[in-house]
Each structure stands twice: as structure tokens, then as C-alpha cells.
């Protein structure tokens, strides 16, 4: 991953080749993240393009205090939130339908069916899907997620807990 930081350092010196490399290495990852939030390919592609323009413009400001991918995903997230604001599609995690029904028992076996799990993840609210994506797929620590989302570490933990619970409930309801 240190390679990504090195690429950003080169981009800060207007190195186009480094920029192309960074794009090639990370675009799928970033695009997948954005798509998970906005659920629309065209919008996700627009945000992806904006994200990398911002990466180019802001490379000199990257101080390496966070991982390069965390920084890029953070930019993508801010742009996705701007999109949500424009479309006024903010969802309130607390009153989302996922949490209304079902029980919260452990259902590890439900997760074993990957196709069901994928369907469940698609149905999750964007905030829940995002937190699971960042914590379990990108492998960011709670601390890193806390900085990226500008929320306290405890809120990250709570959100992870609720996201898992919501996912279990969705899977449970689907089986029924």
C-alpha cells in the first residue's frame, strides 16, 4: 500500500504516468465503493471522475497521515454525500425499515449462502453497507473509519453492530 502513497507523491509533482498507475490500481475499488452508496452506474462514474480530478488537484496536500486509499475513498465519499444532498436522499439510519422486524439472534449459517448475503448487502441502507464495506472489506480500523466519516470511534462500533444486526434480520426475513 505504501506504493500508493509514493504514487501520490509523484502526482503532486504533476507526474501523469503516476496518476494513470494510481487510477489503474484503485479505480475498481473506489468505483465499487461509490456504486455501493449511490446504486447508479452513471452517477457512480461521474463521482469516480470527480474523485480522481480532486486527487490530481489535491495530491500536494496529501500529508500521508492516513492511508492513500482511505484518503481517496474519503474524497469519493464527500462527493457522494454532495450528490445525496442535491437529490435530498438522505436516509435516517434509525428509522430504516431493516430494524423494524425480526430478531437479532446470531445467524452465522445464513451468511454462508453467499448469494443471499450479496442480496442482503444490496438491500442494506447505504450507511450500513458502507460501514460493513469499510470495516470488513477494505479492512480499515475503527480509528481510520472514525476519521474518514468524522464520527467518534464508539459510533463506528455501534454502526457496525447495527449494520450486522440489520443484515442478519434481512437474511432471516428472506428465508422466512
Amino acid at each position: 500500500m505504501a506504493e500508493l502513497e509514493a504514487l501520490i507523491d509523484r502526482i503532486a509533482l504533476n507526474d501523469r504516468e503516476a496518476f494513470a498507475q494510481l487510477y489503474n490500481v484503485t479505480n475498481r475499488r473506489v468505483y465499487f465503493y461509490i456504486l455501493g452508496l449511490v446504486k447508479d452506474e452513471t452517477v457512480a462514474q461521474d463521482i469516480l471522475a470527480e474523485t480522481f480530478v480532486e486527487v490530481w488537484k489535491g495530491a500536494s496536500r496529501f500529508e500521508g497521515r492516513s492511508k492513500a486509499l482511505t484518503w481517496i475513498i474519503g474524497i469519493a465519499r464527500n462527493l457522494a454525500l454532495k450528490f445525496f444532498k442535491k437529490r435530498k436522499r438522505f436516509e435516517n439510519i434509525d428509522d430504516h425499515h431493516e430494524l423494524r422486524n425480526g430478531n437479532s439472534e446470531e445467524f452465522a449459517e445464513r451468511f454462508a449462502d453467499i448469494e443471499d448475503l450479496k442480496a442482503g448487502l444490496e438491500k442494506l441502507s447505504w450507511k450500513h453497507r458502507e460501514i460493513l464495506h469499510l470495516a470488513f472489506y477494505e479492512g480499515f480500523t475503527y480509528e481510520e473509519i472514525s476519521k474518514m466519516l468524522s464520527i467518534p470511534v464508539n459510533t463506528v462500533k455501534t454502526r457496525v453492530f447495527h449494520a450486522r444486526k440489520a443484515l442478519r434480520q434481512l437474511l432471516d426475513n428472506d428465508k422466512d
Partner: peptide, 12 residues
């Protein structure tokens, strides 16, 4: 967690 990672990988 393991299954979640697999699911995300496949989705990507």
C-alpha cells in the same frame, strides 16, 4: 466476517 468479505469480493 469471513463470509462478508467473500460476498464483497464477489460483488466487486
Amino acid at each position: 466476517t469471513f463470509y462478508l468479505q467473500r460476498a464483497f469480493e464477489e460483488m466487486e
